[in-house]
Nucleic acid binder design. Structure first.
Length: 281
DNA sequence: CTCCAGGCGCCTT
DNA sequence: AAGGCGCATGGA
């Protein structure tokens, strides 16, 4: 499929998703319980699956490869820090991820490094996910365990995956989601504030994880997660001489970066991660 | 060894 | 409302 201005590697490795595996020249992962290998060459992405597909809309939907990328970039504020972040990695994209996998992954993310999140999600999936056919006959792939599956597990089983204090949060959230009373498919029709309040009724989901979930599932493009990296980015790039509170930074993020504030946030996040060893620190 | 990680929930002021 | 602290675990 065509993929102009699409940096697949940066996108899959940018901390918005945690299950893609680099194979050197491509990436292997699972989308909607289908194993897929993605290889980018220039302005194209080639996809390989185990079974034939006549309709690839599920992949295009996930990759958001047909989104109005020029329009999104053009909606960012025309200030020096933002433009610098875009220049650093033009082609970074936001995916549209599965709701429960995104929610569960970010419940597991608190006070973990991205590498650790990947590891615990991998262990958890291999232990309790469904086996997914893949070309690696001796290395089967596993889906992210469904909310129904998680709801049937015990806290002890989850802790054994290395989840620590997050285990009861994931279990409680899975039970709420499996009950089906959350209106999880209507979050994109609500105001950001209402959607956030809805998600934050789940255990282990505060402001930051709620915003990650709402942004990375495509429900709320203005959601602007403020974590430790974004705090540093906003302080250094926009308020180098005055300390702002977390609340002030959240408010600034939502209002300063326009109708695609969350997209802008991902650029700032990536910019800080790439330059973490440079003089910017 | 210490410090910190894409935080949250709960308890004090 | 705002700030402090404990929580599991592993990497830097």
């Amino acid at each position: 499929m065509p993929a102009r201005d699409y940096d697949l590697a940066a996108t899959l490795d940018s901390g918005q998703t945690f299950r893609w595996h680099s194979t050197g020249n491509g990436w292997e992962g699972i989308i909607r319980n289908k194993w897929v290998r993605l290889v980018q060459s220039g302005d194209q992405i080639q996809a390989t699956t185990c079974t034939p597909h006549s309709n690839w809309s599920w992949l295009e939907d996930y990759l958001q490869s047909s989104s109005d990328f020029d329009g999104i970039i053009a909606s960012f504020p025309d200030d020096e820090p933002m433009q610098r972040a875009v220049r650093a990695c033009r082609g970074l994209r936001l995916l549209k991820q599965d709701c429960w996998q995104c929610l569960g992954s970010f419940i597991l993310s608190s006070t973990k490094q991205i590498l650790q999140i990947r590891r615990v999600v991998a262990t958890f999936s291999e232990r309790f996910g469904d086996a997914i056919p893949s070309p690696h006959s001796n290395l089967p792939s596993y889906s992210f365990p469904s909310a129904e599956t998680v709801a049937s597990l015990t806290e002890t089983e989850l802790r054994a995956c290395g989840m620590g204090f997050r285990a009861p949060y994931l279990l409680g959230a899975a039970q709420r989601v499996a009950d089906g009373a959350l209106a999880i498919d209507r979050l994109n029709t609500m105001s950001l504030q209402a959607a956030r309040e809805t998600v934050m009724t789940l255990p282990g989901v505060g402001r930051k994880i709620a915003d990650c979930f709402l942004l990375f599932t495509g429900a709320q493009p203005c959601a602007f997660p403020v974590d430790v990296w974004i705090t540093k980015a906003l302080q250094r790039l926009y308020f180098p001489t005055q300390n702002k509170t977390l609340k002030q930074l959240q408010q600034f993020g939502e209002t300063h970066f326009g109708p695609n504030a969350g997209y802008a946030q991902q650029y700032l996040f990536h910019y800080m991660r790439v330059h973490r060893r440079d003089s910017i620190n």
